[in-house]
Design a protein around this nucleic acid. Sequence first.
RNA 1: GCGCACAUGAUCUAGUGGUUAUGAUACGAGGUUCCCAACCUCGUUACCCGAGUUCGAGUCUCGGUGUGCGCACCA
Length: 566
Amino acid sequence: MVEGQNVMGRLERLTGMLRRRGVILPAFEIHGGAKGLYDFGPVGGRLRAKVQDVWRDHWLSQGDVVEISCPTVTPFAVLEASGHVAEFSDFMTVCQACNEASRADTMLEAHHPNPDALSMSELQALLDEASPPCPACGATEWSSIAAENLMFDTVIGAGSSGRAAFLRPETAQGMFTTYPAIYRHFRERLPFGAMQLGRGYRNEISPRQGMIRLREFNMAELEYFIDPEAEASHDFTPWRSTSVHLVPAEGDPFQSTIPDALDNGVILHPTVAWYMARTHDLLHALGIDLDKLRFRQHARDEMAHYALDCWDVELHGSYGWVECVGIAHRGCYDLEAHERATGQRMRAWRNYAEPKIVEIDGWTTDGAKAGPAFRALAGQVKAKVESLPADAAFPASLILENGEEAVVEPEHVRRVQRTESVAGEWFIPHVVEPAFGIDRIIWHIIDHAYQEAGDGDDLYVRMHLHHDVAPIDAAVLPLFEKDGMGEIASDLHLRLCASRGVLAVYDASGSIGRRYARADEIGVPCCLTVDHTTLEDGTVTWRERDTGEQTRLSIDEAIHRLSTRA
RNA sequence: GCGCACAUGAUCUAGUGGUUAUGAUACGAGGUUCCCAACCUCGUUACCCGAGUUCGAGUCUCGGUGUGCGCACCA
């Protein structure tokens, strides 16, 4: 209990600081705010950009991944094909007695093996027939069912010519809809990946817990396309001695290296294991505390029906364990769905080791004769004839799909005999998808980095951000703004800001200790102090955030150090 | 979406229908100070929004918005 209060108190102080210092703040606050929407402020905006940069560089370093960017406004048909229109809809009904809204499919689970799969009218019929009691008050008077969609809908174009559309609920569909271009870019050779950083939208019923559940959020997804029959060749050497926390779908949590868990069959697919390992490294590089990271495998009934294996990365913070990354083997589900909806080829070509020699020996129709003879049925007759064995004899009587009989004479058919060499085949690639909730990751970077020292009301706050993600790289502090120290410091400040990738702040107000504290609070990794010695020999004090340690070095050295590590 | 609680400067907060709304911290200006939230002087900033009750509303009522907690929801 006491610990719970401490966690709450810390959380309140942390969110207060984030607001006060312009890291993360409720959006549109002057108009009363809006649930589930947050601003990254002058400090947070930079933090987000740096996290995204680290994320981008990490995956591009693999060499077989490209970055794309797709619109957030997405036509209805795209999300219908992907299954989101159905998947993101809940069929709600309202109890007439107590006004409690319930999901119709959930209540009818006792009356149907899989009510989730029913259409709205089927559900309505079943609800009328079964009339289950209201879970809140026990009444059985239900309103008619209404579809609640968790996607934001909009219209492309004006008036009656407008097309229905949604704001995308995930960025992934962009990688699938551009698959043909990506396949071409990689010169038609698997495996390869495409990724995208961007915004996603979900009209959450009840956003809670600050940054954890948002209506508009930053996400980053990578789709890695593989040949399901090719043997994956991932080098796990770097992870052979790195133990991680694993929570398998069955059995107890345990610690293991990722390659061992793969060998033991806990992780089902080597490419999933590969992305788990790479994700582990990425989160470490972002400054996530590895003791507060675990991989949790989805139970079979928790996985999307098409997923073959799925592991979440959960991070522990002020809100407990929170899913921040999903690494899913999605099979061929998405590409197949778009192929089915559009008729476009969403495939890759695979050569056989040896070309296959195919003996074709069978029958087909002679169009010139069979066409006039069977007219509208000619197509069906052709299909039927081509399915006959080589030893079929004519005339033959065939029963067609619609039950009609067709008598095929010898003159209607032709024998087909040839040898074909088939070099390979088209197949739909499988996809392994690591999907990152950037806002949730940023939250945990902050949560893990935020440290309070001291006790009582006199807490000293330090954010131990990794310098790769620290919003501000350095603070330039003139000990006093006199004797020329102020001028030297402003000049240093400008030179730092002019260096690519370096952002420095200038702070001359308050005592030096107060300024160190201000910098520590938002995680500035180092402070450069211009003092009297600077006037004599041109050196400044470099003060490390985490240790408070001070060293003297020349202004040029300081600039060089910051611009090379940024 | 339902229920309960809450909403006062930048942050945290006091305030039981009646003057100019409390305090701390923070922030700004000046002073002081040769390196870790010191000190002195001065200063800026607030009753979530909208209706209502009342001679009078930060305070009471209703509605909205937001926040927290519980239930439900959570690709």
